[in-house]
Write a protein that binds this DNA or RNA. Structure first.
Lengths: 360, 360
DNA sequence: TTGTATGCGTTATCAG
DNA sequence: CTGATAACGCATACAA
């Protein structure tokens, strides 16, 4: 029963490989033991075609008993597909990013996929290299989380073997060709401004992201300018400072706002909780206490916002859900076989009132 | 030249697959175009055996020109190895963990490996499932980062196809069979206690991790008890509270220390910066300000420690380096072909003085 | 519904 | 140093 004839005249290898290496059980072993063909085993594994209940039971039993796991290389070789999805990020230890990854992971795991997290350090060449590595690995899809990419790179990416979706940031030329899930930066900032306005603030400073960051830099600044205008509030240019989302830059921007203005704003809106934290610290070192002397508002609603004293009023971006949706988009693309449909999905934000902004 | 005879009588397939699918260039294409055998191409790709300069040049040129990337499935099938290493963590958005992952990633990337990050949510079954998934993927090795595992599970793990190393936490039965890289919890806590003692504190409270956490719970408590004893300092049991490393638990523990003690400690040492942050907040809500009324010290030296006001004195654990070393250990295991050697490597800690502890 | 026989792209063995 | 070719384990078109 174990020696099915092989019609080619070469010797049958015994089950153990060259040097007693750990040979794992294969679909052939299962087939023989269950007295069916490998095709049948394959069918029950993949549920691809109907198999009689009797055989199904028998096969399943043998699979179970031998703890058979299909070899993913062989499977990949045969199908040209893997069950891995890649995620490229600039910095995995950034809380916003890791929360997004968590969301991606959550749905990927449910779908039986594993995610490969790759860090680019914000380096374009490295990013390209990782994309290629992912292509070698035959990733079924990839998600770019928090990456700032321009139109040229988008075009290159569209040529990859897998669908790509962006999350948290969108392509910088406005033409979204790659599917993207994102929060509405303009309206999120507008809502923050309105919140400040409602609290009685009229002179509002702004600590911005870098100018070369489309979604989180340019867009948010645009949101700030237009909403201030709508409210008919004036904004001296010296009320606007460009940081880089870091704590230190928040501190520095605060200092410059203080130094460059005879009349200080009564509130400062920062584009990340981290910069807001820096701003609070900077204000303190300038002898200003928050919120008595100055109100400060953050953005993101990372855990940090709650840990600070005073706890930060901020706008919550649901990064976990954003990651989940991105993964869902990716899977739907993978299922439809399309590289990109240009779909853009938004995730809702929400102003969170805590103690760093006071009513005046 | 393109039609090498095939001696078996079946038709030669044309290069395009069934439906104009994206067929990628294979080693055969390269071999034909460079007028050599696939074996030779394989040799130059892997540098496995000497190939004449002339052929090497020719092959390389063709590879370059066609942007040939070996198919990792085929390669894996032939070698039974992948260039994937798995990392299992409980919570990817925990800063301590993500920093460790960053370190792992750093060396893995250099070595040409990609890492697969899997989240277990601290769930044992899920952890087992992920381990099996990694086995299916033929991961070359896996790192357990910050996972609390007991002896039984270690034994199971040793049966996996790949070497495993633990980082940040060690096996809970003291017998280290799995290679691990870790910081010295006992001495780190001792150094913190000595720091407090040197600053004049004699009544010291302790906010501990959970009792079922071997490395970060039990060990640190042990460090606290023995070092207090060495210093001949008394510790009422009501000075010791068990948290779970969260901000909220830090707050709660602080409250209980306050409620359960007529004579308050002058300093409280928390086993994570996060709990220390909670403790600061808890103290504030009790009318105690830090460090005037009470000194509080953290552990880990996450970024949060610097962001807080007052900035936390704490003990720095170099998690990034710890991750790097773990990866290095894993690679050395992979190279030697051993599953485990029981090696234990320590990473140095350091007390960081900031402003949450005052001299008395 | 089930079985047979390839092909998938590499590596590695074994001859030259 | 080089070439021919048998695995590697699975999926699937084609037969039965």
């Amino acid at each position: 029963m174990y020696n099915l004839e092989v019609g080619k005249g070469f010797p049958i290898l015994s089950k153990k490989g060259r040097e007693g290496e750990h040979m794992s059980v294969t679909i052939d072993d299962i087939a023989k033991e269950a007295r069916v063909s490998t095709a049948t085993v394959s069918r029950v594994i993949n549920g691809s075609k109907a198999v009689s209940p009797e055989l199904t039971r028998r096969v399943l039993e043998v699979i179970e008993r031998n703890r058979f796991k299909p070899n993913s290389f062989a499977r990949g070789l045969a199908t040209d597909k893997s069950s891995i999805i890649g995620v490229i990020v600039a910095d995995i230890s950034n809380p916003v990013i890791s929360t997004t990854i968590k969301g991606i992971n959550h749905v990927a795991q449910q779908k039986g996929y594993t995610v490969m997290v790759c860090e680019s350090d914000g380096n374009g060449d490295k990013e390209q290299m990782l994309l290629e590595r992912l292509e070698e690995q035959k990733a079924s899809g990839v998600i770019l989380a928090g990456m700032n990419v321009d139109h040229n790179r988008i075009q290159q990416m569209l040529r990859m073997d897998f669908p790509i979706v962006m999350v948290t940031q969108q392509s910088s030329d406005g033409k979204i060709t790659i599917n993207t899930v994102i929060h509405d930066n303009i309206n999120a900032i507008r809502d923050a401004v309105v919140f400040l306005h409602t609290s009685g603030h009229r002179r509002i400073g702004f600590i911005c992201g870098p100018e070369n960051d489309y979604s989180s830099g340019i867009k948010r600044l645009e949101g700030f300018r237009t909403s201030m205008e709508e409210l008919q509030l004036e904004v001296p240019e010296s009320y606007i400072m460009f940081g880089d989302f870091s704590y230190e830059s928040g501190r520095e921007c605060m200092r410059r706002i203080f130094e460059e203005n005879a009349i200080m704003p009564t509130a400062v809106l920062a584009c990340s909780d981290l910069m807001a934290a820096g701003a609070v610290s900077g204000a303190a070192s300038l002898g200003l206490s928050v919120p008595q002397d100055l109100s400060i508002m953050g953005f993101d609603d990372t855990d940090l916002a709650r840990y600070l004293n005073p706890a930060l009023s901020t706008v919550r971006i649901p990064y976990f859900e954003e990651g989940e949706k991105a993964a869902e988009e990716l899977f739907s693309l993978m299922e439809s076989g399309e590289k990109a449909t240009g779909k853009l999905v938004y995730v809702p934000h929400k102003v969170i009132r805590r103690f760093s902004v006071r009513k005046i």
